[in-house]
Simulated scan of single mutants.
Amino acid sequence: MKKFFTVIGGMGSLATESYVHLLNERTPTKNDQDYLDYILVNHATVPDRTAHILDNSKPSFLPPLLEDIKQQSLLKPEFMVMICNTAHYYYKELQAATDIPLIHMPHMAISVMKKKYPNAKKIGLIATKGTIADHVYENEISDAGFEYSLGDQEVQDKVESLIYDDIKIKGEMNDPKYFDILKTMHDKFDCDVIVLGCTELSFAQEKAPDHPYQVIDGQGIIADKSIEFAEKIRRGEKIDFTKIY
Rank of each mutant, 00 (worst) to 15 (best):
29 T>E: 00
30 K>Q: 12
106 P>K: 05
89 Y>T: 15
213 Y>E: 11
32 D>S: 12
26 R>D: 03
73 S>Y: 03
150 L>Y: 05
99 D>G: 02
79 F>Y: 08
15 A>N: 01
159 V>F: 04
138 E>S: 14
242 T>Y: 05
89 Y>V: 09
179 F>I: 10
224 D>V: 02
163 I>C: 08
22 L>Y: 00
73 S>L: 03
6 T>M: 04
235 R>D: 14
150 L>P: 06
84 C>A: 14
239 I>N: 01
43 H>Q: 12
159 V>A: 11
93 E>N: 06
245 Y>I: 03
97 A>N: 14
14 L>I: 12
32 D>G: 04
116 K>V: 12
188 K>C: 01
87 A>H: 10
225 K>E: 09
91 Y>H: 05
109 A>N: 08
20 V>Y: 02
75 L>S: 12
103 I>P: 00
13 S>H: 11
159 V>G: 06
13 S>Q: 13
150 L>I: 07
5 F>Y: 07
234 R>S: 07
207 K>W: 06
196 L>G: 09
124 G>D: 07
168 K>C: 11
137 Y>K: 02
91 Y>A: 02
90 Y>A: 14
243 K>G: 04
200 E>W: 07
62 L>I: 09
80 M>D: 04
103 I>W: 04
129 K>S: 12
78 E>C: 11
148 Y>N: 05
213 Y>H: 13
234 R>H: 01
29 T>W: 03
143 D>E: 10
16 T>V: 00
90 Y>H: 15
66 L>D: 15
105 M>F: 09
244 I>P: 08
15 A>K: 02
163 I>T: 09
153 Q>I: 08
236 G>L: 01
186 H>R: 13
152 D>K: 08
71 Q>W: 01
5 F>A: 08
183 K>C: 08
51 A>F: 15
209 P>N: 14
75 L>M: 14
86 T>I: 13
183 K>F: 09
182 L>I: 10
144 A>C: 02
223 A>I: 00
238 K>D: 15
122 K>T: 12
201 L>S: 02
211 H>V: 01
163 I>Y: 02
211 H>R: 02
147 E>T: 02
42 N>F: 11
106 P>N: 03
46 V>M: 11
129 K>Q: 15
149 S>Q: 02
43 H>R: 12
204 A>W: 10
215 V>I: 13
60 S>A: 04
185 M>P: 06
135 H>R: 11
148 Y>A: 05
49 R>S: 13
228 E>V: 01
175 D>N: 12
133 A>C: 04
145 G>V: 00
154 E>P: 07
114 K>H: 15
231 E>L: 15
102 L>P: 05
116 K>W: 08
88 H>A: 11
165 D>E: 07
163 I>V: 12
221 I>G: 03
193 V>D: 08
181 I>M: 05
156 Q>R: 14
231 E>Q: 15
148 Y>C: 05
78 E>P: 01
50 T>L: 10
94 L>C: 14
56 N>K: 13
105 M>G: 13
192 D>I: 11
191 C>W: 09
127 A>W: 10
94 L>G: 05
50 T>E: 07
226 S>F: 03
28 P>V: 10
131 T>C: 11
180 D>K: 10
163 I>G: 00
81 V>D: 13
